[in-house]
């Protein structure tokens, strides 16, 4: 059974003063997320990521299509007891302490009152907020709020965790901590669905990703599979500062550093370049493939196709 099944989910808003102008926030989306995987939902701001998440959480009602989480309907309270959600840039109740906040959420999630206190302490420990347990949330920094948000999302031991931009506003150390937390969630057998526009995080964490832009799905798959499809480059290093005509004419970037020259050329030109160097009797030092990054794949997908030009 898929952890999350999205079947043709779409959302169109009517905007304008008389609410007559349709604005497509999300084109029909089809996705299936497996149990236990970390799934990244990538796209620039405004791509439709948050809209999708809100529809899955039952906060926004889809214009068409449906979805199932853990095989259950989106409004099923039994399903909701088994999912956790971290919204984008949460703020929370100013006057509650972290502990009170989690107790409140735990009560609403139906956590057994006998276990509540210990679970709250456990999860605060896990996100590194134990020392700030009794501090009011209005005194929390952005990073601390983010961690509190994650805490409330996992407090009741959900099977699926939804995170909307979990790294936003965090410094590098904070981001590293969150990454570690997400990896732990996977180790605990949970499914994690998170949206982000920071590709390096997705690359490091995700089993699979989906790329979305302007409300449309542009691609889905394992990171390795996606990046392998993109034509890579190779880096050639040789002795000397001369650049063979063949290499120069291919428009490659060349850097001269002391006695060596380095050029990055498309993979398919590799053989021609090595021949050119041999002809000019330049000593080849190394030929290294530069691995295509997710960013390359991402930017390639984002190029708008003809039909996407949005009519004003």
């Amino acid at each position: 059974m898929h952890a999350i099944e999205i079947l043709g989910l779409e959302k169109t808003y009517n905007i304008g003063f008389w609410r007559k102008r349709p604005k497509r926030a999300l084109h029909p989306l089809n996705l299936a997320i497996e149990d236990g995987e970390i799934f990244g939902f990538l796209g620039p701001n405004g791509a439709g990521k948050t809209t999708t998440l809100k529809m899955l959480m039952g906060l926004v009602f889809p214009s068409a299509g449906s979805a199932r989480i853990l095989g259950m309907d989106l409004h099923d309270p039994r399903m909701k007891a088994q999912i956790g959600f971290l919204p984008e840039q949460p703020y929370f109740y100013d006057y509650l302490t972290a502990r009170e906040l989690l107790r409140y959420y735990g009560q609403l999630s139906g956590v057994d009152s006998r276990q509540l206190s210990s679970k709250v302490e456990e999860v605060l420990e896990k996100v590194g907020l134990r020392d700030s347990m009794n501090v009011q949330l209005r005194k929390f920094s952005k990073g601390m709020l983010q961690r509190a948000g994650i805490a409330q999302a996992i407090l009741h031991d959900p099977k699926v965790v939804f995170l909307d931009e979990p790294m936003s506003g965090l410094d590098p150390m904070g981001r590293r901590e969150v990454r570690t937390l997400i990896e732990e969630l996977k180790r605990d057998g949970k499914t994690v669905f998170f949206s982000t526009h920071i590709l390096s995080d997705a690359e490091a964490l995700c089993d699979r990703v989906a790329v979305i832009n302007l409300g449309q799905l542009r691609g889905v798959g394992a990171v390795a599979d996606l990046t392998s499809g993109v034509k890579g480059k190779v880096e050639i290093v040789w002795q000397g500062s001369a650049v063979p005509a063949a290499i120069k004419s291919s428009g490659a970037e060349t850097h001269i550093a002391g006695e060596t020259t380095r050029a990055v050329i498309p993979e398919q030109d590799q053989d021609a370049a090595i021949d050119a160097l041999r002809r000019e009797r330049l000593r080849l030092i190394s030929v290294t493939p530069v691995r295509a990054s997710l960013e390359d794949y991402f930017m390639a997908q984002l190029k708008p196709s003809a039909e996407e030009v949005v009519p004003r």
């Binding site: 909701k80 959600f85 984008e88 949460p90 703020y91 109740y93 999302a153």
Partner: peptide, 14 residues
């Protein structure tokens, strides 16, 4: 406004 509602309604609260 403070998005606290989202975390409440994503739980089994009608």
């Amino acid at each position: 406004e403070k998005r606290t509602l989202y975390t409440v309604l994503s739980r089994p609260v009608r």
